[in-house]
Design a protein around this nucleic acid. Structure first.
Lengths: 147, 147
DNA sequence: TATTGTTATACTCTATAACTATA
DNA sequence: TATAGTTATAGAGTATAACAATA
């Protein structure tokens, strides 16, 4: 009886809800910045670099689903803030290598604390079961965003 | 042993993943428009109107987490596209009532079909269990976006 | 000739501040 | 005096197109 294939009415409703929720949340996230001087994409790039260690601008652009010129600007802003270091690529002189600075580590740690505060304020509106669902969905959303 | 209160390391990691996924997905959603001439917020407003039947610009602004002047512009664009009708408020001559047209209904139906196609293409990268998690999370995300 | 990254430019979306009309 | 909506303006973030350097 339960139709588990994709493309059911349930799936369509879920996609609809996810799309509109993502847009609304993204608008609020843009304003509720953990660091007033850092845009969400800049934060996301730092998060990516914290995981990868380092990457080229082109790799970052692909990972963040942003066009190369946009990443050029983002990397330049991060460098100006002392959060990122640019070095020449060892094998290819066209490319560059972007790495996070220690200041970025510190900042990310601080950002995590502030996010927890934001989380706590939102948590008042969700019960335990709902949070359990969200915790389980977080990695899937992450995978979806990377597909 | 399991700490079920908010503010645990698990919660922080989940919030982190949700935040960055939401931002990445929102960027992609902005481009992968179901209707080329409609922004994500315009789509969201039409979805809201389809549920509520009608609303004032102020109500819509609050629901979409957008400032009143932004909603003025959005409503004007939707009206220009014939997707929304504006009428005077019966009790208060300062307010207006925004309602969706039949054309909006048709458009939303068409949009749903296109979203299903996008869903199907993404579905190839997720397994059944992951989709089940997302389906369960969709209403919670929706609630979160409205808090 | 193809690819990486940059520069120059324009566009979309949203916000803030100031204003009008009504309550 | 307070509220709903609008107008005018500015800003943030991203894209596209054209270009430079290197492969």
């Amino acid at each position: 009886m339960p139709d588990l294939s994709h493309g059911t009415a349930d799936d369509a409703a879920a996609v609809n809800a996810i799309r509109s929720s993502v847009m609304r949340l993204s608008r609020r996230l843009k304003r509720q910045r953990v660091d007033e001087s850092l845009s969400p994409t800049e934060m996301s790039v730092l998060g990516t670099l914290a995981l990868c260690g380092s990457a080229t601008p082109g790799e970052l652009a692909r990972k963040e689903h942003v066009q190369p010129p946009s990443m050029t600007r983002i990397v330049a802003l991060l460098e100006a803030k002392g959060l990122v270091r640019l070095e020449p690529h060892p094998d290819d002189r066209r490319q560059k290598v972007v790495s996070p600075t220690e200041q970025a580590e510190t900042m990310l740690e601080d950002a995590r604390r502030k996010r927890n505060a934001w989380l706590a304020s939102l948590a008042e509106g969700l019960d335990e079961d709902e949070w359990a669902v969200l915790r389980a969905a977080a990695p899937v959303l992450e995978k979806l965003a990377h597909l």
